[in-house]
Amino acid sequence: MKKILKDFSRNQKEVVPILHRVQTEYGYIPPESLPEIAEHLKISESEIYGILTFYKAFSLVPRGKNIVTVCMGTACHVRGGPQILDEMERDLEIKSGRTTADGNFTLESVNCLGCCAIGPVVVVNGKYYSHISVQKVGKLLKEYKST
């Protein structure tokens, strides 16, 4: 943590960049890091907590090895986004927002990724898969199950 904070100034606007960095380093935001960030930026812990619960990009619990994100934006929604998410939940046996028991997958949904033209979109570990259908879900996940 100390090493991370060293790279950032004490300006309060650094809060989001710091959280991003912590999220990348640890895979999530460890609750113990809040007091340290608060002290560095001279703001209160609750202010940081407010910010990190606002953004979906931050998680307070450890996340899986593979992050699966299903788009629920308007365009993806009308083309079957919810059904894709349902299928994912069935396949992985977890609810959206949770991580599988073996820690291999975290399933999430977002409300638009901005690439509506290629929807329905699923993102796995930052890699975009376009025109996904319910039938394609099994195959897609299988690819990551083996790794």
């Binding site: 703001i43 209160s44 609750s46 202010e47 907590y49 407010g50 619960t53 606002f54």
Partner: peptide, 9 residues
Amino acid sequence: ASVISFTYR
């Protein structure tokens, strides 16, 4: 004191 904040969205 900043003990409370808006949380979630």
